[in-house]
């Protein structure tokens, strides 16, 4: 294109966005993490992060995120596989995705009613003879609701990669005498691993940081990294410590991204 000035001019808003809303915010978080609550420069926040309290919180946050991701995957994979075999599969997929468009807080709120002391799940437990249980404000309810929320996000990428899978490969495996399980293990699953990876990515990272669920459903019994950040920023106003936790969350995020790096391989 001949006009060099206009060619570069249109890039300005986008590059400005990258600078203002991508680079500077991360730099600011890093910068703030070196200041204590009184505004003095110190490494105290990092020291504090490596005390048992914070390390334990990080570990338990990891554990919950892992649990949520694993359960979502176990439920989502077969669902996606079965969905690709239905007629009108795009329509069914759309119906799976609809609940993910309902506001997350409304879904969490629904479980306040369902899991409540007199809620429908407790009446059910009473009928089958287990009796009333405390379900709300436990880690079980936190994991359940999180899985409920993440399932559509897990199904979508897996469905897409299953949908792209060349069916002749499966036929070929069958012709060569592979059993259904072998076909799945050696052909279908390895070829859809990219979908699984991106599904895990979109589940694991938010699962580390959903603070509204821990507040509403787990009643502060579960403290995730996200809850801690929110607490420091909006409740105790200790932005330095909040930023420090955020820095670690960013580092974890980058590691996970590298780990689940989806490189396209030709098939």
């Amino acid at each position: 294109m001949e006009n060099k000035l206009t060619r570069n001019l249109y890039k300005v808003p986008y590059l400005l966005w990258i600078l203002l809303f991508v680079i500077i915010p991360i730099a600011l978080v890093l910068y703030y993490s070196f200041f204590d609550i009184e505004g003095h420069f110190s490494l105290g926040n990092y020291q504090k992060f490596f005390t048992p309290v914070y390390l334990q919180m990080t570990l338990s946050s990891f554990w919950y995120a892992f649990l949520i991701t694993a359960i979502s995957l176990i439920i989502a994979y077969p669902t996606a596989l079965l969905l690709t075999k239905t007629k009108h599969k795009q329509l069914w997929l759309l119906l799976i995705i609809v609940p993910s468009w309902i506001n997350l807080l409304l879904k969490a709120y629904a479980f306040l009613g369902i899991f409540g002391t007199y809620g429908i799940s407790n009446s059910f437990l009473k009928v089958i003879g287990i009796g009333q249980q405390q379900i709300l404000f436990t880690d079980f309810s936190f994991v359940f609701v999180s899985v409920y929320i993440f399932i559509p996000f897990m199904i979508l990428p897996i469905f897409n990669s299953l949908n792209e899978l060349n069916p002749t490969l499966v036929d070929a495996a069958k012709d060569l005498g592979a059993s259904k399980w072998t076909t799945f293990r050696r052909v279908i699953f390895p070829l859809t691993i990219d979908g699984v990876k991106s599904g895990c990515q979109v589940t694991f990272i938010p699962a580390l940081s959903l603070f509204m669920l821990t507040r509403l459903i787990a009643g502060n019994r579960v403290i995730t990294l996200g809850t801690a950040i929110e607490q420091h920023f909006l409740v105790t106003q200790d932005w330095g410590m909040g930023s420090t936790i955020a820095v670690f969350l960013i580092i974890i995020m980058v590691l996970i991204m590298l780990l689940t790096n989806t490189r396209k391989r030709g098939v």
Partner: peptide, 23 residues
């Protein structure tokens, strides 16, 4: 450019919120 683009997509909401609050 693509990596910069994807930063905000993969970042957890809390981090986006907190960093924007500082900004």
């Amino acid at each position: 450019l693509l990596s910069f683009n994807n930063v905000l997509i993969v970042s957890p909401d809390v981090i986006i919120g907190a960093s924007f609050l500082i900004l």
